[in-house]
Structure formats: C-alpha cells, structure tokens
Design a protein around this nucleic acid. Structure first.
Lengths: 309, 309
DNA sequence: ATTTTTTGTTGTATTATTACAAAATTTTGG
DNA sequence: CCAAAATTTTGTAATAATACAACAAAAAAT
C-alpha cells in the first residue's frame, strides 16, 4: 500500500514498521519452513547483503526463486522487494553496528580500541531487548493508572535505579503530577508509611533485591497504595508489586563496561513518562509549555533545545 | 566504489559517508548551476520523495533528464542512483523527523499507542548519531588525559547534564580516580576557582549555553586546569574548552518525548568511562573488584548483577 | 484422491544506465 | 571584442538490469 507512487505523502505507517523489521523476520523464522525459511535465514545472516544486493543474488544465495523474495516482502507488509530493502537499510542505519555486526565473531574477541563500537552495541542490544520484552505488557493500562494518581512516589537505590527514579520524578512533575523520588533507604521506608489508597508507588530496582525498596513497597501495600515495580521478572520485588513493568537486560561480563542496564532503565522511564503524557492527553502540552518558558526566561531563548539542559 | 558486489564485506567506508550526504548535497547546491542545481534543490526539498520515488519521477519533478540524476549520484561518489537512494534512506532514518521534517505532517498526529516504538526508535537513532559523529575524534588521547589526572571535576547543570555528571563521577570514582561532580551553579564556580594545573575539568552541557558551566570552565582555565567539554560543536562552551567531545543529537519536536539527548549523554559517559578504564589498563580490575565486594557484603551475593543497582 | 498451499519458470513491465548527439559554456586566436 | 574551436553540460533514444505477474508444477494438507 505504501508504494513508491505514494512517496510524497506521509509515510508514517512504514516509519512505524521500520525498526521492527528484524524482529518480524525472526518471528517468521519460527513459523516458516522450506524455501521461505531458507530465505529469511539468509537475510538475517547478512542484512547488509540483503540490503544492497539485487533480488536475483539474494534469491541465489538462499537457493530460492526470485518471486519468493517478492512474496516475503509482501508478506511482511511491504509493497515489494524495493520497499523492503529500503526498510532494511533504515533499520541497519538505526541499529548501527549492533545489527551490522550480528553475524560477526564474539564481541569481546575484537581489539580493545573500538570502545565506541562496543558501547553502542551494548546500548542498542539493551534497548532492543527491552522493547521486545515490552510487547507483552499493556502499557496504556499502566500509564492510565499513573495519570490518574493523586500522588506518585518513586523509589530507587543505587546508581542506576536512583538515576531512573529522579528522572521519572522530573518527567512526571513536568506533566503536572505530584511526583517525588526517594533514593535514601530510610526516607523510602518512612515515606511509604504515610501513603494512602490514592497514592501510586513506582519502584525501580535492576536486581529486584534492593532491601529498602522491597520494604518500602511492602509498607505501601499495607496502606493500600497501588504499586508498580520496574524490575527483573521473578525477583522478590517483582513478586510483591501489583503490576510488573519487566526490566529485561543482559549484563555482559566485560568488567570495563558494566552499564548496559542503564539504557534499559532510561528506556523504561521514557516509556512510562511518554505513555503517561499520552494518557493525560493534549492538556499536558500547556504544562510543558510553561516549564519550557520558565527555563527560557532565565537563559535567553533557545526554544529548540530540550527541557532541562 | 562500494558497489553491490561488495555488499558482503564490512561497509564501514559507506557508513562514514552516510550521515553526511545531506551536507554534501548542500555544498553542491552552492557550486552547481543549471540542471544539476535544480535537481539538488528538488532532492533537498523533499528527501522522502527522492528516497522512494523512481528516477523518472525525480527527474520529472526537477525538470531534468534521467541521466542527470545518475550523474549526480556518481558525482557524490556512489555507484549509481540505487546506492544514493539507499544512503538517503539511511540518513533519513538517523536524522529522523528532523530531516523528514518540513514537508511532512507532524509526527504527533500519529496514533498514540505506539509509545514503545517511538521511544526506542528515538533512542536507537540518538545512539547511532553519536557513534557516527565520534568516528572523528581521538578518544584514546582524551581518555589518557583523564586517566593521568590528579583530580577530576565534573560539571553539569539541569536534568540531563547533571545526571551525566553524577554518573561520570561514579564511574571514574570506581576506577580509582578522584572525581567530583557539581550540579549547583555556585559550587561549580567556587570549585573551579581552587583548581590547579594538575586538575582536569569535564563539563557537560547539551546546549553549550549553560551560564554557570561556561563560567566554571573559564575560571578553571585561568588556573591552568585542562578542560574537556562534552557539548554541541560550535556552542560557546565548545569554543572555550581545550578539547571537545562532540555531543550530536537531533531533538525532535515531539513534546511528549523530549529526551533523545539523554541517550547521547549516557553514551558519552560510557565512552569516556570505558575509554578511561582501558587507558588505565588491567590494574583497574582490582579496584572494580573491591567496589563490587563492598556492595556484595552488604546485600548478599548476586555477583552477576551490575554495580550499583 | 482431491483440494489447498507453496514454490518455481517464463515472459513482461518497470527502472536505471550507456552511448551518442545537441546545446550551452568556456577558451583561444585573430 | 568577436567569432570559431574546444570543452563541458545536458538531453534523447536505445539498451541493460532489475523486479514482478501469470501461469504451471510440485508439495502438503485434507
């Protein structure tokens, strides 16, 4: 439908599909069989090739016929091979080294000087893992709860989680919600003990074992506050919360680079904050405008810049 | 000569050219004239169209002949129109709404439920843009400076930058460096005034206009401290620092999601921290082990978990 | 054994490029 | 400064490359 002929008009539909293309290919790999499976395998095995090579070469390499390639493209929702290749090119651009390198040797084997490659591969991977995991959950329901809450209390201890907690506080605050973040273990427990049924707790912990956060959530529940936990599925914290926002990440053992999970946390904050903004709806724009203006008046006008330099 | 035939090998050469294509077109617009100029104008006027439309349509719209399009592609260093269009598609993907911009309806008009897609696309794109931009700089030199510093002072004001500053402090501290972060404007100026030539300043600012950070860097320079700025190229802060670590990002106009730059900042922190760890070398591992142990003794052993939940 | 689905073959339509010719531009000799 | 030659730029038409449709054969499911 979104064919070349319609190039001029808004191609937002295809834009949405873009990044997901690799995931969709992987799904198809499970279901498919025979010629199509061979083809998908071949494409995933070398995305670069599939992007730049003509259909004849792609077909030859996968030992399938040319129309099979066209048919796969159609099956994925594209108007044809051409369009599929453009989208592959785009996800390759966005996924960067992460996707480009998927068929390469073990990351840690490579020379130590490509710090940039490693860090961004790790970050891309972390984000990818998160968005895959989240296809399971019902984000709107969670964010509607947040949007309706009278008071939002955010817990998180330790570098990553407390960063996330503070960040979420800022973001929700800008949306006009009463949000407060607590990083201090004592304050977490104390603040939890004065909550009521109209309060909403959001608790961050990568491991799900942070003692003070678990305590605070338990206390909050005693007072009937709703609790959302952002943590690893199956962890103690995940088990006691009302709703789980799963934090999925794979920390690799490279001691020099112990931070992939931070991207996952940051993404979680973004998902929650943006989702909440959406749930609140257009009236949130007025509040954002005010915040922006309050910053602008102080530091003379760079309106294009993000909030809170 | 990165033709389709070479698709299988690592196409890092084309990777470098990728983002720059719009800039190169703009350069050509100055020099060129006649048919080519018309064509370039037309392409820049609607990158989307140029990306998706067949050569005949592109030529027709610009009122030039088809071979002129092929010739332009060649002149830009591509093997042909096909390749040029792929690269356009990729820069469009990375530049995102920014490049797609003018001639499209607002992204915000799209349905509200694909929060996850939007956030992760933004994040991926931000990371990719950073790593492309950083292929220019000499990271080892910078991180060796950090590794050798007697004392590291980190400045950053406002949500994103202060988060980055604190995070970098933590990371460098774990490596055994004397690192201190200051988010408070007054403290920034004060701390800068007591530095000496052996101190190293790292200053974060997304815009590069944060008054207190600029002041602190100027003061630090008066006392001969080395200064590294992590900020937008060309900004006031970038101009006064000794070394620039360029922060490249395209904040899109989606008010609901004002945070792509945070991923760029986080990546910058990772690049610097990991690079520094590399520069220090293996002896850093012992320090990391100690930090890990100090955390483990308190909260009973989950050694696989990242430092600082 | 028949129907349905999947895959391949062949011919055709679309798209991009080459080869050549015609303008347009610049250069050069008077 | 002007025309004629040389050079460059641009366009036309033929050709090559690429992708697709229609149909047929094979495989799988009923």
């Amino acid at each position: 439908m979104t064919g070349p002929g319609e190039a001029t008009e808004n191609s937002s539909a295809s834009y949405d599909r873009r990044v997901d293309i690799v995931g969709r290919l992987q799904t198809r790999l499970q279901l498919g069989k025979g010629a199509e499976k061979r083809l998908v395998e071949s494409i995933l095995g070398d995305l670069n090739f599939a992007t730049y090579a003509p259909i004849a070469d792609i077909a030859a390499r996968a030992q399938v016929s040319e129309p099979t390639v066209t048919r796969l493209a159609r099956a994925l929702g594209f108007s044809g091979t051409r369009e599929m290749k453009f989208h592959l090119a785009q996800s390759l651009a966005i996924g960067g080294a992460y996707l480009r390198g998927s068929n390469q040797k073990n990351i840690d084997d490579r020379p130590l000087d490509d710090v940039i490659t490693k860090v961004s591969e790790g970050a891309h991977a972390a984000l990818e893992l998160m968005s895959v995991a989240l296809s399971e959950i019902d984000l709107p329901t969670i964010t509607q709860d947040i949007a309706k809450a009278n008071q939002v209390v955010v817990y998180g201890t330790g570098g990553g989680s407390s960063m996330a907690a503070v960040e979420l506080q800022n973001r929700l605050f800008r949306l006009g919600l009463q949000a407060t973040a607590y990083s201090d273990p004592q304050l977490q427990r104390m603040s939890a003990s004065v909550l009521d049924a109209k309060a909403l707790v959001i608790a961050f912990s990568i491991s799900g074992h942070a003692r003070s956060v678990i305590d605070a959530v338990s206390i909050a529940k005693q007072y009937n506050a709703r609790t959302i936990t952002v943590t690893s599925p199956g962890s103690p914290l995940a088990n006691i919360g009302d709703t789980l926002f799963p934090l999925t990440f794979k920390e690799d053992n490279n001691l020099y680079k112990p931070t992939a999970s931070r991207y996952a946390l940051l993404a979680a904050v973004d998902f929650l904050a943006m989702g909440t903004a959406m749930s609140i709806g257009p009236k949130v724009l007025e509040r954002l405008r005010r915040v922006r203006q309050s910053l602008a008046s102080q530091d003379i006008g760079y309106p294009e810049l993000p909030l809170g330099d």
